[in-house]
């Protein structure tokens, strides 16, 4: 209501939703400065991972971001977690329990059950610039010719040709990205996992995929990804992140569905 006043009061930062029987490491600290203890607010079978913060201090330092992710990912390797997007703040613990947990109990419970035993893994692949450019030039003699025609000439005089060349290279990389992403997705599909393609966030990105898999079968996931990484050695550098909280597999349903 109208408790806009009291400036010194803290507010509650919410990281995510977990089953109520989760135990929190007493050493765990949250976002904000100074970082407060991470606790749970329970309501029936479910709980919210929270910590107090000072409402007057802006959030979003690299540490805050890392802390948010670390807490959720740490929990996700052990228990099902519904991660909240960074920056969810509620006025006090009662509001967390009533307005967040109770109001959404059904949906949260169901989602937690679906995540039981599972975690998110992210596959990120990046083209090795030299290798991919060579590959493209070999496959496209016209581009190689264009490059030859530009060689040794002044940048100003060949600006248009350079732009044209670069644009075609960019298109070729995009086509490779599409093919290689499909290849990775097909390889992963041999496992019993859910996939969610992610947006391209780097020019030289080859693969960017989120994958929801059973943590018990992480070995299989690793070996499938590793096999492609070996095949693509020197061409694509592949990283596999996880287990992480299932950021890419939780959906916000409006109006307390």
């Amino acid at each position: 209501m109208a408790d806009v006043a009291e400036k010194t009061e803290t507010v509650v930062y919410v990281y995510g939703i977990v089953p109520a029987d989760v135990e929190i490491d007493s050493e765990a600290r949250g976002v904000g400065d100074p970082p407060a203890k991470v606790t749970t607010v329970r309501s029936g079978d479910i709980a919210a991972l929270v910590s107090e913060i000072d409402p007057d201090r802006p959030l979003g330092t690299p540490e805050d971001l890392a802390t948010h992710a670390r807490l959720l990912d740490g929990a996700a390797s052990e228990v099902p977690v519904l991660p909240l997007r960074f920056g969810a703040v509620v006025s006090n613990v009662d509001a967390v329990s009533e307005e967040l947990l109770e109001a959404n109990r059904e949906g949260f419970l169901e989602a937690l059950q679906q995540l039981e035993g599972k975690a998110e893994y992210i596959v990120k692949g990046r083209y090795v610039e030299k290798a991919i450019l060579n590959e493209i030039l070999e496959e496209n003699p016209a581009l190689a010719e264009l490059r030859e025609s530009i060689k040794g000439k002044s940048e100003d005089a060949t600006r248009n040709e350079r732009i044209a060349l670069g644009e075609k290279i960019g298109q070729a990389i995009a086509a490779k990205r599409e093919a290689d992403s499909r290849r990775m997705a097909e390889a992963l599909a041999s496992l019993d996992v859910q996939l969610s393609p992610r947006d391209v966030t780097e020019e030289q990105q080859a693969v960017h995929l989120a994958c929801l898999a059973e943590t018990e079968r992480q070995d299989e996931l690793e070996s499938v990804v590793d096999e492609l990484a070996a095949e693509w050695e020197g061409r694509v550098e592949i990283r596999l992140l996880g287990p992480l909280a299932a950021y890419d597999f939780v959906v916000t349903e409006q109006a307390g569905a």
Partner: peptide
Amino acid sequence: TILDKGLVIDAYV
């Protein structure tokens, strides 16, 4: 990951 994925709740504050 955390800036545009994850559940969104109404931030009351």
